[in-house]
Design a protein around this nucleic acid. Structure first.
Lengths: 222, 222, 222, 222
DNA sequence: AATGAATGAGTATTCATTCAT
DNA sequence: CATGAATGAATACTCATTCAT
């Protein structure tokens, strides 16, 4: 997970112009995460983001259509990258239980060390009603479905207990991840806090989803 | 739970005037829940709440100091009542597992049938950065602590497994409840959906927290 | 023409509230004429109109949807009243030549003493491309048609020469009125200037439109 | 009038570079006429003119000091050329009546086929309050004076009736020309419309200005 | 208490203009 | 000369809040 920086795809600039351009967009997004996390979406003035990014107010509108669009772009640049990373990692893992553990580890691990981003994802994104209802909802649904599918596979193979709704389980897991991240981001946000939480949450969830005959598949040996 | 209306303690006024007064305050809060749920906190105009409540714009300021204060009052009137209800119910229950089950049932059961309130609690409240950081955070902390205490008691008595942090467990449970409620409120919000979810979530959580020796204490018989 | 004030229909206020309301709308329109005439439409700030009217900026938006709408309302309140007055006066006059003379006298007479309004009508109204193309054009067309109809009637009765297009004559007359008004308003705007101009323009136009046999019908005796 | 192109004095450049330079200035002015006529002065963005001219935004500022200055230059390049042409043509004509007829024919004839320019002259130029008050007013005055001088000469020689103010007559003639051009430009702008109008307007005006004894000097034969 | 007309502070966004390349 | 990315001043409009009635 060490290589899993959330901004690994910054385009390699060759021409000076591309450098400046790419630079500005990235600087604005980085500044937006910081300022939004600190003051909230609505309380943040566009001019504050501009100042934090070291650009003029108008420059922001060369890269983003509006303040709302800036939040959407933040979502796309960060959250979708996170989701894409998850999707690329999961196939490497065998077994539903192990996949769920990996989901938990990755989601919490990726946000560890990015407190501002964690706050943006768990709190700020929800402050734009428009973003929530029009844009983000389908993404969340897709993510929930992906988790539910893993659970359903585990149930089919007998690896997980079959008496729980996969979708309920998915929403519970996602909610737990979200709640843990939010309280961490809004609270002390101690180093290693999320990684430790990941291990414990995995224990809780995998035990809770284990077959009822007593054989517990925690994904770590018997 | 039939008596668990979220507004059972409205003091019965005797004089007509007092009655009208209380009436207006209640009408405004009810209208606020509806309008906030529909449009979000920031996109809602005070005049819209006034219109929905059937009062003049200025009247709202006779009962609430500001728009933010209206949201705070909503929180106090609804969420705190919910929490208080939980606290009054829990002592009637014996055993940590059974208490956790009851918490899950109550929180989800109380919001079933109050979709707008569910959306306000899970989404709208977070749209006011001020409310989140200055007011609600300590309440959430208190609630998390209450849950954590139940878990810790269960661990002490051997009723629950002792290798998980009570606070982590509490945050996971709260997050799961929150996530389930949010997706329900933002989605179909089918009748009975939350009650069914409560049973399944209890199964998942209690199994996940059961002692590791295989003896599962679901709180329902052995 | 002495009674022909351009604002005679200010609604008689009975209730105090209506009084304030009517007052504000009228004050804003009066202020708008003054400020628009002085600085032009685009160079005028809404706040300047508000200040000149002695109201708050926001108050303007209680009476007018936008700055453009304010100009449209000015048009309706003033120009249309002028046109309506013309239409009510013309039937009292007999003979095409005399009607044309009356049109010229009324249009110039009504603006005499209202220099700001004259400037608004001849210059400012044309500064809003939107107003010109979407709103005012049909009004001007209707006015031109009315003049052309008078000319056509005179031609049919033999009172006016028949070899000129009524529409061309109408456009020429209107243009002359407009040009005279504009140069008067932008220039010295001397007292009586427009009234004197009216007499001379009538002489010029009526002679120009007289039958070619040498009998000149100036509308004032032989 | 065939040689009366409105841009006949563009100096023929010899060196390619100078050619390109002159080219750009001309292309920008041509583009400005088109775009201004279509959208109005204020609604037109400098970048739109640049795009229509096929140059970069900044290039416009190599040839014109500002957007206002661009309009002024348009005026100078087109309107003044028109006026200069008039002045060079008039001396070739003998007699006040014939000179007035020529003025009318030239002004309308030159704009026939240049609808966009006609709209710019009659509408757009007035949208810049600054241009109107600071720059164009004296030019118009000079033009009006020139016409008035022709009328006065005709009055002195007995060719025109002496009872009308030369300045009033000039303003009426100019207004009629302006009004006819404007309605033509904003309306159908039919081919030949202005040329036909010229003939009729000349008839109207010259008859209107003819000596009162019945001898009509239309400038065409007796 | 209730009203709702009036207020005016507050801000996202535009676009003429500049200047480094 | 030419470019067009960057600038930042400038402003119409909104809406929470007030207060005279």
């Amino acid at each position: 997970m060490s290589e899993s920086s959330l901004s690994p795809r910054r385009p390699r600039r060759s021409s000076p112009r591309a450098a400046r351009t790419g630079d500005k967009r990235v600087r604005i997004l980085d500044a937006a995460v910081r300022v939004f996390a600190k003051k909230g979406f609505h309380a943040t003035r566009v001019s504050e983001v501009a100042k934090a990014a070291g650009v003029a107010d108008g420059t922001i509108y060369l890269y983003f259509k509006s303040k709302d669009e800036l939040l959407v772009s933040l979502f796309e640049d960060r959250v979708e990258r996170l989701l894409a990373f998850l999707h690329s990692e999961l196939p490497r893992v065998t077994g539903a239980a192990e996949k769920l553990r990996r989901i938990i580890e990755l989601q919490l691990g990726l946000l560890e060390g990015e407190r501002d981003l964690a706050e943006v994802v768990t709190v700020i994104l929800r402050q734009s009603t428009k973003l929530m209802k029009e844009y983000a909802a389908p993404k969340f649904t897709a993510y929930l479905d992906a988790i539910a599918r893993v659970v359903a596979e585990g149930q089919a193979s007998g690896e997980l207990r079959g008496d729980l709704s996969p979708h309920l389980a998915a929403r519970a897991i996602f909610g737990a991840l979200d709640g843990i991240t939010m309280t961490w981001a809004l609270g002390k946000a101690d180093r290693g806090g999320l990684v430790r939480a990941a291990g414990q949450l995995a224990e809780l969830v995998l035990r809770g989803l284990a077959p009822l005959d007593g054989a517990v598949a925690t994904g770590r040996g018997a």
